[in-house]
Amino acid sequence: MEEGSVKKEVLHESRDGRRAFLKICSVFLTSLIGIAYSIPIIRTFINPALQKTVISSSGLVEVGDIRGCKVNVPRKVAIKDSRRDAWTKYPETVIGAVWVVQQEDETFKAFSVICPHLGCGIDWDKDSGRFICPCHESYFDIKGEILSGPSPRRMDTLETDIKQGKLFVRYQKMKLGIAEKIPV
């Protein structure tokens, strides 16, 4: 009788050992599937963060003829460009605007109309001869330097070029609300 119960015990133990092994295997194999499956899943999910999904031209965009420009009289010109939004390519549409100013030395400067503070549209105030952002009253002079107001930096200048009497601007949006000018 003694012997019998001992045997039973051993049997029991070995069975428990087997079950414990099965448990470990089950958990291990399940995690294996989980990991194998999550790799592509996660890659797909995070993809847009690693990609440029909305693309406007980063090249020079023609904004128009420079004839008829007067020194220190800002002109607002629309930037037209085609835009790429993930799979869709939109035909040329207005994507923004710039203030074009002919300097005293006859060169041209282009300022983004987007206020570096929080992104409102900057206007030219003819009477006072200043740029003004109406949202929180930032003022800039004709060179784009801050006169007063909450804007953390001067108006953003954009790269320009003149080819055959036409002005080109490299249109870019900059990060808002910080002192440095960094393209987004």
Partner: peptide, 14 residues
Amino acid sequence: WGSVYYIQERTMSG
């Protein structure tokens, strides 16, 4: 179609 194309061809592991 475009979105499926984008998943299929332009998305990692899509």
